[in-house]
Design a binder for these strands. Structure first.
Lengths: 210, 210
DNA sequence: ACCTGCATGTAACCTGTTACATGATTTT
DNA sequence: AAAATCATGTAACAGGTTACATGCAGGT
């Protein structure tokens, strides 16, 4: 239940049309809450129906016509209420860690490549964030808004730093044990080391598993 | 599309019933891929129908009866194929960062409390992980499986460390500017600083926003 | 007989994803 | 006039969440 509140926040920062919001969700807002344009239009319609936002009267209500929205007092109240409620951090759900756990069962073929690919992506993202930081948040104290937004950006920066650190560490640990054998690298799917089926339960007593 | 593969991995580690899987998803596996028992039963039914897993013949197919599943060769092949495909890291989606961005618009009331609450939760989680680490992964090299699983755990540990660092840093930055005024702390929702409605677009030219 | 805990589900709903449709405006 | 781009949507589906239903086993 956070997308509507992300949109309310964005609209309070600046009234926008659906497509403008979509673009903002591809940039700054999307760095911590992503959304597609379909989600945004759906949610805008709901927010309007709930009386939280309204289309600026200037806009013509035709199909291909731009329609700008602004937040109504009820919308601001809703956002304030949401902020007061507090959300519990949700358990992580990350495919890459799952991928690594799977590697412990089906073998490490291709794992290094995948880690290196992610490492490159996270490094690129970090560079982007650093660019934003030097451009938008020069040293010296700005307004309260600036400082809060800077903290959000710091969150992104430190998260990417975490990934880069963990990936680097993992690649190092994998290097210590050279991926089975160099000549099995080109094996097709289904040819994983350890026979394809029929010996489940082999590593039953391994630690850190249950 | 990762839940089925999480289940396949779990079942390859050890054939289990739905409820046993649920419990494992509340512990180790759930530390990086959470799932409820409803999801698990639904997915088990699908995986069985697809011929990736089967119920062990010993079990009686009655309603309140335990039903254990094991992975079939086709299931192992499917998992291997999934692992070879590689997933792109998805854009982050975190309510707490959103909450902080909202605070830049509606005011910082209650923000410190929320950050402190999260800090405590992340510290507790880190303690849990450290407990697992010392118990299950003593120094000295174990099997390849052990080392991969240890890396996964390291991921969890370093992620919690990131949160603790960022939250601490943020609390420090907020302390520097003491939450508006001490006497507004008990204000009701709807009384946020900055008038409730009617002045959107105020901070249009602020950096780091578009 | 009744209650509690174990175990497997059903149903309804909401969010997010993917593919496609349609109208308006600008460019070539 | 055609094509590209801007802009708003519809439809169908997959995945995740919440609440509830059903059956069996063991204890009191």
């Amino acid at each position: 239940m956070s997308l509507p509140h992300a949109i309310l926040t964005a609209l309070l920062e600046k009234p926008s049309s659906g497509l403008e919001l979509t673009r903002r969700f591809d940039k700054s807002i999307g760095y911590f809450w992503s959304a597609t344009h379909q989600q945004i239009y759906r949610e805008l319609a709901r927010l309007e129906q709930s009386g939280f936002i309204r289309a600026l009267p200037s806009a013509v209500p035709a199909r291909g016509q731009k329609k700008e929205y602004e937040v109504l007092p009820a919308g601001r109240a809703e956002l304030t209420e949401w902020a007061a409620a507090g959300q519990d951090p949700k358990p992580m759900r990350d495919p890459l860690l799952l991928r690594m756990r799977a590697a412990a069962v089906i073998g490490t073929d291709g794992l290094r490549d995948e880690l290196e690919r992610h490492l490159a992506l996270h490094r690129a993202q970090l560079t982007t964030y650093h660019g934003i930081e030097t451009k938008d948040f020069p040293p010296g104290r700005g307004s309260e808004q600036d400082r809060l937004r800077h903290l959000v950006l710091r969150g992104g920066i430190e998260l990417e730093t975490f990934w880069i650190g963990w990936l680097t560490e993992s690649l190092g640990a994998l290097a210590a044990e050279p991926e089975k054998a160099p000549d099995t690298l080109a094996a097709e799917p289904g040819d994983a080391p350890g026979t394809p089926g029929a010996e489940q339960g082999r590593d039953q007593a391994a630690p850190g598993q249950t």
